[in-house]
Amino acid sequence: MAEFSTSIKDAGGVNVVYLKGYLDAHTAPVLENTFSNLIEKSKYSIVVNFKDLSYISSAGLGVFMAFIEKIRDNSGDIKLSSMSDKVFNIFDLLGFPLLYEIYKSEEEAVNKFSETKKLEN
């Protein structure tokens, strides 16, 4: 059975979600729970770090679509970072870069939240 887990770090008000392992139709509910828990706690500024994600299928991509509008409606966002070429190619093939900001590094993605806040103030 494929292993998948998430862990969360607070980076100055931005919640960084680390994905590890294999994200498919079997493990997608784990990520759904992670996003649901963040939303329950009104944590809407989210960076997802893909560094340790080995595999993603469309069931995993679907999880991002399920939560993004609710998060943006609450002035938040899900920004993506640190994808391998293999994982990025799948996102790219399906047109996700039009809907999501994807950054090379976690730091860049986290900093975008504070830049956006500065612009708003």
């Binding site: 679907g62 939560f67 399906l94």
Partner: peptide, 11 residues
């Protein structure tokens, strides 16, 4: 899909 919060046909 963005509006409907779901995906289909991606696979």
């Amino acid at each position: 899909y963005y509006r409907q919060h779901r995906v289909g046909g991606l696979g």
